[in-house]
Computed example of a mutant assay.
Amino acid sequence: MSETKRIALLIDCDNVRATAIEGVLEELATHGTVNVRHAHGDWNNPSLSAWADKLHPHAIRPMQQFAYTKGKNATDSAMIIDAMDLLYSGNVDAFALMTSDSDFTPLVLRILESGFPVYGFGEKKTPQPFVDSCSPFIFIENLLPAKKGDDESAPVTARVPRAKLRQDARLVKLLRTAVDQTVNDDGWADMSRVGSYISNNNPSFSPVNYGYRRLSDLLKATEFFKIDHQESRMLVRDPKS
């Protein structure tokens, strides 16, 4: 039995909303245990009051960084130093960065070079270079809690409808290529291999960004693929291949 992956969550409180932290922690729980939880920011700043309310309920450690010079973001430097210290500590197996700032892209690339996955979480305004560097990247708008009066069991973000999925040329090409490259002699591809192919070739991809928890649900929603459920595995095929 494999050991549980230890994940270090570093939060840039200056430019990401506190309301998504529950969803982020729930998502990370599917990957391992978040044994390091650091929230970086100037805690003397009233704008971080929403984050301050989230610290104790979620066992998040506040990392104080004073704004020594107006207009300069000292939080970024402190968070990078923290990440590098953790990288060499030997106490974590993966990183999660909660930020919408593309300045952290070089940090992500450096961590990846050391063989550690980096889960990214940020708002939809996040620049594409940072999104593409993470493995994977999830927009926090898809992880926000349901509003009062809504069905809390319903998806937070509405699923992208079939018609829109089919019109997304980049998505369709990604899915069809993944199935085609992992297909067996009988024309069927193992779903786990399809997922691995996507992770290796497009690590920032996540079905959550389309409103689906599982890759199989996303494939099924496009109605481009046939899905076969077996006792020990799930198979997929593209009839047009």
Rank of each mutant, 00 (worst) to 15 (best):
E3H: 11
T4M: 08
A8F: 04
L9Y: 06
L10I: 09
I11F: 04
D14L: 09
V16S: 09
V16D: 05
R17S: 12
I21T: 03
L25V: 03
E26H: 15
H31C: 08
V36T: 10
V36C: 05
H40N: 09
H40S: 12
G41K: 14
D42N: 15
L48K: 05
L48R: 11
L48W: 06
S49W: 00
A50L: 15
W51E: 03
D53A: 14
H56Q: 11
P57T: 01
Q64G: 01
Q64P: 00
F66G: 02
Y68D: 02
K70T: 15
K70Q: 09
K70F: 12
K70D: 11
N73H: 07
N73P: 08
A74E: 06
T75Y: 07
T75S: 14
D76K: 07
I80P: 01
A83E: 03
M84D: 00
D85M: 08
D85W: 03
Y88N: 08
G90E: 05
V92I: 15
A94D: 05
A94S: 11
A94N: 06
F95C: 01
A96K: 09
A96S: 04
L97V: 07
M98C: 10
T99G: 01
S100A: 13
S100R: 05
S102A: 14
S102K: 10
F104E: 04
L107C: 06
V108G: 00
L109E: 11
L112A: 08
S114G: 01
F121M: 10
E123S: 10
K124E: 10
T126K: 07
V131D: 03
V131Y: 00
D132V: 06
S133L: 08
F137M: 03
I138P: 00
F139K: 13
N142W: 12
L144W: 01
A146I: 04
K147C: 07
K147T: 11
K148Y: 07
E152G: 02
E152I: 14
S153P: 00
P155H: 03
T157F: 11
A163K: 13
K164W: 01
D168N: 15
L171N: 09
K173P: 01
R176V: 04
T177C: 00
D180M: 13
T182V: 05
V183N: 01
N184G: 05
N184L: 09
N184D: 10
D185S: 12
D185W: 05
D186R: 08
W188K: 14
W188P: 02
D190G: 08
D190K: 10
M191C: 05
G195Y: 06
S196M: 12
Y197V: 00
S199T: 12
N200I: 04
N201I: 05
P203K: 02
S204F: 11
P207F: 06
P207K: 07
P207Q: 01
N209D: 05
G211L: 10
Y212A: 02
R213L: 15
R213Y: 09
D217I: 03
F224W: 08
K226C: 04
D228M: 14
Q230W: 02
S232A: 09
S232G: 09
R233T: 10
R233I: 07
K240F: 00
S241G: 15
